[in-house]
Design a protein around this nucleic acid. Sequence first.
DNA 1: CTGAAAGCGCTTACAG
DNA 2: CTGAAAGCGCTTACAG
Lengths: 360, 360
Amino acid sequence: MGTEESPPANRTGLTIYDVARAAGVSIASVSRVLNGRANPRRETRERVQRAVAELGFVPDGAARALSNRLKEVVGVVLRRVVGDGMFTDEEENLLFVDLINREVEIAAHGRGFDLLMSSVAVTDRMARPRIAGVAGKCDGLILHDRVLAPSDISRLAMRTSVVTLAGTPTPDSVNVRGDNAGAMRELARHLVVEHGYPTVAYLAGHADSPDNLARAEAFADAAVAAGATCDRDPVWQGNYMAGGGAAAIRAAMAAGRPLPRAIACANDQTALGVMRALAERGLRVPEDVAITGFDDIPAARHLHPPLTTIRQPIRQLGTTAFDVLHRLITGALRPGLEIVLPTTLVLRESCGCDGTKGMP
Amino acid sequence: MGTEESPPANRTGLTIYDVARAAGVSIASVSRVLNGRANPRRETRERVQRAVAELGFVPDGAARALSNRLKEVVGVVLRRVVGDGMFTDEEENLLFVDLINREVEIAAHGRGFDLLMSSVAVTDRMARPRIAGVAGKCDGLILHDRVLAPSDISRLAMRTSVVTLAGTPTPDSVNVRGDNAGAMRELARHLVVEHGYPTVAYLAGHADSPDNLARAEAFADAAVAAGATCDRDPVWQGNYMAGGGAAAIRAAMAAGRPLPRAIACANDQTALGVMRALAERGLRVPEDVAITGFDDIPAARHLHPPLTTIRQPIRQLGTTAFDVLHRLITGALRPGLEIVLPTTLVLRESCGCDGTKGMP
DNA sequence: CTGAAAGCGCTTACAG
DNA sequence: CTGAAAGCGCTTACAG
């Protein structure tokens, strides 16, 4: 495609010295006008600005960062979603993580920060070194769920500012998450008390996800407390993806296991897979089995029937993650806390409600 | 949420000097083992590695970049998609741009580069300064369609390596795009000759998109050459979004304008909006109006009927964009060329084919 | 208001 | 194989 091994790019490496020479001032003055200081007097300022414009000078970010001890870059690390071959939903929809990242970016721009995005594959044995690599290029890190083991997060957090999203709290980082237990309890009571479903199950997400654990426990406890039977069989283990939800249904039915009257899924993607698998077998939602999700991704309301789910405050989660990280970076906040944002139960039709009035 | 104005973050700013002291060697040796050089002898190497591990040392990327004259970061700038209020498809689906970015990231990781992502809003008057800001933080830039005016791209390309995706060729940058004209001509002939549609129209994308212009021209020319009438009325102006496609249909019908027998849309999103608007009015695709798209985003095959479209080589587009940028950065390639990747006509049902055999 | 100079944390010829 | 030292391109006290 081109000349290999040819001389290095000849993009004239302009520096502040070139600008200073062109403007007939010192580099200190150039730096001052570049940074919008008040002192350079009008005439000096204009000469510098003219030189900058004429030369098309772009200050080197690395040099600025080194001098300022601030890169104005935050790293965002996420798990690369790998389709499981069953459904391509994960690959096609903007998921929870994408939605959060969008908000993070907007918040970051507001403070002059840019986002360094890095994804690690599920099987990535190199996750640790790679994340260390990005850590060196940023002022702080936002780590999505399960990109690093808690002990690694701990270590990393001692050396740089880190905010985890739906992660494990650590003394040196801050975790930002939605309120899992509150909404899950409310959901369990809604299913058992208001709809009167006698048997329920929680279709789990990844076993090593703190959010998943919290949801499972709150749901089961509240369901049992409300008088229902909660099926805790291992078939109800999913993986936060549509394929995992579908597989669980298939496995349960193949085992001749009676389905619970209501299934609360670990997230919306799982619910999506469950609903497809149910439809394939001719089972109706909510008449035969009531289904609920978690997150309220945009696709949730377009399912048939519309999915009852628990809404996470996606915008706030993203904004807060950046905000907290920024405070950590500037030293305005000390780590070691967890920020829990409120969630809300959104009643649509998949739980048995009629979708308009909220109850059958 | 925290103590404002408290002392700056006390994350012990470890440097290579600390590691050197801990290991009892010089900073040169530390640097060498950190960079995997062969020379430090086994014992030295191990002492350094131990010190690095114990201290949890993470080398500063800015300092490395300054010294190496290489940041190992590429910037990706895209237009933030803003829903138009009519449909939320743009906000829910992983679009063409997102799919490309995924591939860019994977390719970048293969070379030890990370991605600095920045989005500019449509109305952003600050696009230029912001992009200059990210340029300073990267070794080179990948610019998606319409983030910068051609003249600005030109200027920027004189100071840093830039690859445009579906942009305007410039002497100092390289443009990577799919073959618009070839596939569009093939599509026009398919519609006019094979299906025998007498009237056609091209529902345009943004007027300032080079891809759009090329598609419009190739389609109209080929359609007319094949003997059809091509409706070039201004109502057929969309905006690459579902809402724009729907609005065009509404406007045409409101004006009492007879719809052409086939409408080739500027991209799949537009086709999606068109199909919805048509369905709302009780018109059938392809029986009443044949519809086609461009891109072949994942959602295309799930439409009813499945969308006939022109597939762009998305993976290759992303990989190539990074690859070319990398060569530009290392000086292995000189700018001033355009790379055109092949596209393919994918016949599904929205054009009138039966979807399985390819023709009615 | 302006400039000379030190320093940010690395890498790498250059000597030894 | 190893270390002392210069240099990467900025910013910012410190003098003037």
